[in-house]
Amino acid sequence: MEDEIIMPGTQIADKPLRLSYGHVENEKTYSTVLGLKREDKLIPLKGIYEPRFGDYIIGVVSEVKFSGYDIEMKTPYPAFVPDRMLREKLDHGEVIFAKVMNVNEIGELDLGQVKVLKKGRIIEVPAVKIPRVIGRDNSMITLIRESTDCSIFVGKNGFVWISEKGNSALAISAIRKIVREAHTSGLTDKMQEYLKNSN
């Protein structure tokens, strides 16, 4: 069956559902973003990242403060890593991979389980496409890692970090291809082919 395109305001269920990209009004659920309806599921094509407890993100140290560090991660306000969550000191401009430990009611974020990423570069990916970059049970990202020998970290906020070591140019173009074709089916097979032919 062909996917149905969903607009902000399109009804997606006649009962209230708790969805990231849904809005409930009069016991009915409506989409708040542009998306596709595939087998009663809403696949967002567009959307803004909303941090949740437990998300893994990638960010950059933007300010060294008295009790910790401000982390720029493309949310409206920087996140914060308290000193007590760290074993070592961080430097301004360092890239980290970390877990969201707390989100308060006004959107302020605390991070923990910090890993510093050295010698690589960040590319920006729309946050709604991140699940496709990761793939079911990490299948997609594992495929790219194995085909390029790169170390790759994926942040739910839409940042992907790729090590200098390995074929990083191929890894970047593979990820860009996934982003462009994220809403098509049979993507894993396509990517397998692409990576095989480009290697």
Partner: peptide, 12 residues
């Protein structure tokens, strides 16, 4: 955002 520009500068 400035910090990301810094990062891009280094990459370039």
């Amino acid at each position: 955002m400035e910090i990301l520009d810094q990062l891009k500068r280094d990459t370039i």
